[in-house]
Every structure is written in structure tokens, then in C-alpha cells.
Design a protein around this nucleic acid. Sequence first.
DNA 1: CTCTTTCGCTTTATTTTTGAAAGGAGTTCA
DNA 2: TGAACTCCTTTCAAAAATAAAGCGAAAGAG
Lengths: 136, 136
Amino acid sequence: MLDHTDMRILEELSNNSRLSMKELGAKVHLTGPAVSARVMKLEDEGVIEGYSIKLNQAKLGYFVHAFITIITKSTHHAPYLSFLKTQEGNIVRNYKISGDGCYLLECKFPSNEILNTFLEELNEHANYKLSIVIGK
Amino acid sequence: MLDHTDMRILEELSNNSRLSMKELGAKVHLTGPAVSARVMKLEDEGVIEGYSIKLNQAKLGYFVHAFITIITKSTHHAPYLSFLKTQEGNIVRNYKISGDGCYLLECKFPSNEILNTFLEELNEHANYKLSIVIGK
DNA sequence: CTCTTTCGCTTTATTTTTGAAAGGAGTTCA
DNA sequence: TGAACTCCTTTCAAAAATAAAGCGAAAGAG
């Protein structure tokens, strides 16, 4: 289904999704139209779900990056989930997990003070364990 | 430093980084050359770190997505880190964290069997807590 | 107040890329 | 042997990117 050339294409586009089809073609030894057809096929099949950018969060004012393991207080999660909707600017992703907790929340904050405020509000809906990202 | 138009540009490129400068310009009410100059500025400043794609991991054969909290056995982490290098295909990211553990490892596997093999090898270097992603 | 510089944009024109169409080579299958 | 299919290349018209020139508003100096 996916051959070696397709994997090379995905690799190159992961590194730089703004390559022109001509440049991408040169990297994988195909012409522009040939590689363009393959990319369209990968999109149609749903292998490529979209094209995005990598942002430097610190340059956007987000200096704190954290993972928070969530243990909701009640058995139904709605209060927690609707709380999240009020905090969209700080949420990167909310993973539903099996294991140590109900959710794993990835989030970002301008400062520890703002993180602290967030945690106080979060604590009305859920218990948590905080992990702050130091590197990599 | 970053005005409202820059934020709009980052937003649009996050949704689709392969927009032509002309299309992007139309969305933020600028001409192609004008928006192109702004994007180049955002790149030069390091706000935009790169352009990438979103891949459907299941379609690539990775059906299991997990976060593993790592507690290294010894005080020096080299054995664990060099073990990771041997497992690159399955590793998404390894975050150094402060909190519950030394690292938070995001990884993907074709099956629970392969995850199990991974965990047995991991356990030679570190203790761990496993969280398997169920959704979102 | 006026002159000058700077900045960010638009317009224009050239170069480059895209994408559609036609055609060729290799493979499969009857 | 040949029909159907796949995947590629070549060709070419249309679209986009890019470089250059110029415009107008804002800021600063005399």
C-alpha cells in the first residue's frame, strides 16, 4: 500500500511541508507531477491529515509547558470537560487515558502564577498530578 | 512585536501550512507579497520554527499510543537515553520533567504485543508507569 | 511647521511552479 | 498476443512566487 517512496515523501514533508512539488520530486527521484499525484493520493487515503506549522511557544509568551494527570472528582466528567472549554488558550491537548488517571492534559502558560491560578480552578473539578516540562 | 494580523497568519498556517501566499493574503486582507514578507519575518524571528504534516498513525500501522512516566533506576540517565536511541521508530517525544518521574515518554506501537516487548526491555533501565491513550 | 527617513503596503513584471493532458513503458491477466 | 491498468515522463497553459519600483502615512530632526 505504501511503498518506500511514499515513506520518503512523508519523511520529507514532515521536515518541511512547504517544499514545492518540484523540490520534493528531486529529493525522491520523481518529477513534479508524479510526486504531486502521490501526495494527493496520500491525502485522499487519509494518511496525510493536514499541513501545519511548528511554533516557538516561548516567543508567543508561553514559558511554562506542563502535563497534568487528571483524576476527576465525580464519576461523570462533564464539569471538568466544560471547564477545559473555558481555558482553550492554555490547552494543547486533552488525552483520554487508561492507566494512572482519567485524562492526561497537555497545556501551556505564560507564567507559574497563571499556572497556579489554573490549578486552583481545576481543583474544583478534579484532582491532579503536575509534571512541568524541563526540556526536549 | 506581533500584531493581530501576525496572529491571524499563524492561526491560518496552523490550520493549513500549504496555503498559497495569495490565499493566505486573502484571508488576512493583504496582498500576496505583503503576507509573504510577514511570513518571512516570522520565520527569521524564530516564531515559526518549521512546516510539518499531521499523519494518521493508525494508517501507518501504529495502533497503540502511550505515555510512559519514567523513573530511572540509577541516578545517571545514560543507559535509559541510549536505550531510547535504539527505539527511534516508536518514540514520538521524550520530555524531561519535574514532578512525578524523570521523563515523560510519548510513544507509539503497532500492537500491545510490541508494546509489551518494549516495556520488558525498558524495565532493564527504568521503572515506569504506563498510560495508554484512548481518545482525543 | 516642513523636510527627511522609515516602514509597510500595493502594483507591476519576470521567473518559477502547478496542474491538466497526452503519451510511453512495464505488468497483469485472459 | 494483446487488452487493460498502473505509474511515470513530457509538454504546455494557467497560476503563484518573487524581485523591484513606487506610494502614502507616521515618526523624528531642524
